[in-house]
């Protein structure tokens, strides 16, 4: 059983069990964490699942496509380690991933 660490906007950390094949957004959303709006449901259209990747395999940061990059381009709180977590498809290799939910815009 793999898990990821998610820090919410109050700084509280939760450990979430993940299913390979689901996206990080789905995993966080299904865990009931209230900070994850994820309004568009994972079609890269809203940027409300913005997270900062704190510790992760290198492939997480190199997996961004143009649609995601464009969408994040309009986000004021974007950082070098920003990702939209609906675009991160989880595998066993993501065990131990640590992310922080970005501020609301």
């Amino acid at each position: 059983m793999s898990s990821v660490f998610v820090v919410d906007r109050s700084g509280q950390e939760e450990i979430i069990t993940i299913e390979p094949g689901e996206t990080l957004m789905q995993a966080i959303s299904n865990s009931g964490m209230p900070d994850m709006l994820a309004l568009c449901g994972g079609v890269c259209a809203c940027a409300t699942c913005h997270v900062y990747i704190d510790a992760a395999p290198e492939s997480v940061m190199s997996g961004m496509d143009e649609d995601e990059d464009v969408l994040l381009g309009g986000v004021l709180s974007r950082q070098e380690n920003s990702r939209l977590c609906c675009q991160i498809r989880l595998t066993e290799a993501y065990d131990g991933l640590r992310v922080t939910i970005a501020p609301e815009e």
Partner: peptide, 18 residues
């Protein structure tokens, strides 16, 4: 307003909303 639930929410959120 963007939080309305016309397209649902969660894993079944309407993918055709955009």
């Amino acid at each position: 307003i963007r939080e309305h639930l016309a397209f649902g929410r969660g894993v079944h959120t309407c993918a055709g909303a955009p």
